[in-house]
């Protein structure tokens, strides 16, 4: 695996739900040749951590406003309900894989 990407994953507590989401993203992308390093956080920490670690994608359980920094944001809820998780995974993978200008 020579491609490495970063994901910032947020939930209310930055403990359980975000870990569940992060692991699924890591596994899905890992199986497709992209190593994803992830960091979990509380929703309130997203802006400062996004600035600091410059993730390729943000996945959040609660709705977050676009940060205006070109980082795509995805809904993490399907990973908890199990409903529609595959579709989100595909989208996250596409976004994570894409070559684009990163800030």
């Amino acid at each position: 695996m020579d491609i490495k990407r970063k994901a910032l994953v947020a939930c209310g507590c930055g403990v359980a739900s975000s870990t569940i989401v992060a692991k699924k993203v890591e596994d899905y992308c890992g199986e497709r040749g992209i190593k994803v390093e992830w960091r979990i956080c509380k929703v309130a920490e997203i802006p400062s951590l996004a600035e600091m670690i410059k993730p390729d994608v943000i996945v959040s359980i609660t709705a977050v406003e676009d940060l205006g920094n070109n980082i795509p944001i995805f809904d993490g809820k399907p990973f908890l309900t199990g409903i529609g998780a595959d579709k989100v995974l595909e989208k996250i993978y596409d976004a994570i894989k894409a070559d684009r200008e990163r800030f």
């Binding site: 930055g14 403990v15 359980a16 975000s18 870990t19 569940i20 992060a22 692991k23 699924k24 979990i40 990973f79 908890l80 199990g82």
Partner: peptide, 15 residues
């Protein structure tokens, strides 16, 4: 959960 990094498998399996 005391340290999420130690319980990734547990949380994943639970989900």
């Amino acid at each position: 959960i005391d340290d999420p990094n130690n319980h990734i498998e547990l949380l994943s399996k639970l989900s």
